[in-house]
Amino acid sequence: MSEHSGSKRLVVGAHYGLRDWLSQRITAALMALFTAVLLLQLLAGGRLGYDRWAGIFAQQWMKVLTFVTIVSLALHAWVGMRDIWMDYVKPVGIRLLLQVVTIVWLLGCAGWAVQVLWRL
């Protein structure tokens, strides 16, 4: 890991985007899995009311999968939004501000969603 930190850090070269590229795909696959699992549970079973809806998320394994999805979404959206800021916003100060706002936005939403989930 020595080339990733310290005064001898490698600051140029390829593969810097690989981690982002891969994490965006892995998190996407996890969210797609969540979507499929939720859809299957919604389609199976009778009329949808509060009991059935809350019952889906009350199962421990569904809570874990939903939690993984929330974290995946935050990471996925971070990579995507950072790409957008890097492409369109050139002044460094404004870009930094927007990136900080993005992180706050995502962490805030993720925390709120986890709170909803664990209240069940």
């Binding site: 995507g80 939004m81 936005w105 995502l106 969603a113 909803v116 989930l117």
Partner: peptide, 16 residues
């Protein structure tokens, strides 16, 4: 991304 708080709000009121 922009509508994320709205989605979490829907999640919140529907499960509360």
């Amino acid at each position: 991304f922009l509508l994320l708080p709205f989605v979490v709000w829907l999640f919140d009121v529907s499960l509360g």
